[in-house]
Nucleic acid binder design. Structure first.
Lengths: 138, 138
DNA sequence: GCCGATATTTAGACATAGTCTAACTGCGCC
DNA sequence: GGCGCAGTTAGACTATGTCTAAATATCGGC
């Protein structure tokens, strides 16, 4: 049914990425490949454990690493003391809320960055703007 | 002599920042307020311990926090799993070397960021471009 | 269906980074 | 010199990330 066909899409996605779709990996993918929360590894673990109590912390760490290596996730350094994961692998910027710690995506075209190509002595792999401040509340 | 007058400048700087210039704080300031290394707290501790073996880890953490709160340092999230410290408190960008982990300052004017003020629903406190890649070797 | 090989997961030890606090030390004031 | 307060120390504790032996799961051949 819908749940199974939902998993089938994930299974297909993992197989296309050359990843064997074990039940644990599908469960992890089900959350982390569709969230805009930019969770840490332990956030992902806490979340997946709800529906998959036996999943181990090492499996979650290993799986997130695997997804990153296979291009399904990006690993970002935006929060103090931890890395966070982002399923949006295309270039974009980020806003980090000083108050809540929440991380939000900013579309690539919303900001313009000039002269990166003029930086000397470096081969640029990626760049992004990190904006910090506070979300306005109504 | 030169060493003492060097310390006197630091002592003056700390006093101007409303910070009592204990020997430990002067030693920490001597390194962290003049380095371009963007060290972590433990990096600072290892470094200061060379000349000040008794300095404790808690003192270093507390002092870095104090310097940050008093505007002498900036605390940045650029390295995985740790915060780093930067004495250059004026706005600038950063380059992070994928290979070595080294962090380098990029002058504010070297890159241009457009349309930050057009971001909706947020009060921006600061922003910067983070460039990742590799330093070219000759 | 069984077996062997390989992949994956588990459980938990271990390392590093960051925080917290009781006890101790240093400093300035009276 | 004593007192009150600031600062430091030593180390316990928590959070994050890594590693690995042992166990489990999967797959292909027979």
């Amino acid at each position: 049914m819908t749940r199974r066909s939902g998993n089938q899409a994930l299974i297909d996605r993992l197989e296309r990425a050359d990843i064997r779709p074990s039940a644990q990996r599908v469960a992890i993918a089900g959350y982390v490949l569709s969230t805009a929360d930019h969770p840490s590894a332990d956030d992902v673990w806490q979340r997946v454990k709800v529906d998959f109590p036996m999943v181990s912390r090492a499996t979650v760490y290993n799986t997130l690493q695997l997804f990153t290596e296979h291009g399904l996730l990006r690993q970002l350094v935006l929060a103090e003391g931890k890395v966070v994961f982002d399923p949006m692998v295309e270039p974009h910027h980020h806003f980090v809320d000083d108050e809540t710690g929440a991380i939000e995506d900013i579309p690539w075209s919303a900001l313009r960055v000039g002269k990166v190509d003029e930086l000397e002595g470096v081969d640029v792999r990626e760049y992004m703007v990190v904006v910090r401040g506070r979300r306005r509340r109504p």
